[in-house]
């Protein structure tokens, strides 16, 4: 398995480099747009990635086809989120990503999580985002939306991260190994109790198993998460309560260059 690493890794490097180049072309900029080459390069990278994944998936099933479709959707959506010059469209594309991810979660048999993702993200967080986008609407198309800062360095950071991952992908169990996992586990006699215990929640309802886990093993974490949400709510209220103060600040707001000049030393 490790012998296959180099070829896989190099293929992935190439695909990621191509994707990074495409992304670089697609990031918003004020000078001459490179949309067309960006689309070409980016889509070729995506196709390459899908081909790579397809090769890895030795026996295509409906699930793997769905996986390919949803992963493509998620990646496309993600690209659009960060490349679209208008925040509203970014938010909408983000919904697409959330839906695609939720679909992938269903493929991973995490139905509860998929539902929670849709409800929390698409239902709550995204709505908040859209509200804020509407509140903080700038007239026209501000330059800071039309021009990315240091796109090359940013893309380079992303590429290096992906390259770091790429070398490790082939060490992970692919579909070939996972095909008959339950069979292998059944034949594995060394850890029957542990296998039983860990498999137990998944044998029944996924949601029920998670509920048990949250209320037993992670109950403190759950409480802390709830507390965190409460604090967040209080904080958000406190921030918005400061509207009067912020208006006063707005009145006194001056060009940056003048700030501090009138301050008398002691």
């Amino acid at each position: 398995m490790t012998s296959a690493l180099p070829q896989h890794a190099y293929a992935l490097y190439a695909i990621f480099a191509l994707g990074a180049l495409g992304l670089y072309c697609l990031l918003p900029r004020t000078e001459r747009a490179r949309t067309i080459p960006g689309i070409v390069i980016g889509s070729s990278a995506l196709i390459g990635l899908l081909l790579f994944l397809g090769i890895r998936i030795a026996s295509p099933t409906s699930a793997s086809v769905y996986f390919c479709i949803f992963s493509a959707l998620a990646i496309l959506g993600g690209v659009r989120v960060i490349t679209h010059p208008k925040p509203v469209y970014s938010a909408v594309y983000f919904v697409l990503v959330v839906v695609a991810v939720a679909a992938m979660l269903i493929l991973l048999q995490a139905e509860f999580l998929a539902a929670a993702l849709i409800i929390i993200y698409a239902g709550a967080i995204l709505v908040t985002y859209v509200f804020v986008i509407m509140l903080a609407q700038q007239s026209g198309r501000p330059t800071y939306d039309r021009r990315a800062r240091e796109p090359f360095a940013a893309v380079l950071a992303g590429f290096i991260l992906m390259a770091a991952v790429a070398g490790q992908v082939s060490t992970l169990p692919g579909s070939q190994d996972a095909t008959s996992r339950s069979a292998r586990m059944a034949s594995d006699e060394s850890l029957p109790a542990a296998a039983d215990e860990s498999a137990d929640p998944l044998k029944g309802s996924n949601t029920a198993g998670m509920g048990v886990l949250l209320m037993t093993k992670y109950v403190i974490a759950l409480e802390i998460a709830g507390l965190l949400l409460l604090i967040s709510m209080v904080g958000a209220i406190a921030l918005s309560k400061k509207r009067a103060a912020s208006e006063r600040i707005e009145e006194e707001a001056r060009p940056i260059g003048q700030i501090g000049k009138e301050v008398k030393p002691f």
């Binding site: 992963s71 991952v165 992908v169 992970l172 579909s175």
Partner: peptide, 12 residues
Amino acid sequence: MTGVGEYVVVGA
């Protein structure tokens, strides 16, 4: 069935 590696790649 799809393996975990592919998901990891997409997540990354």
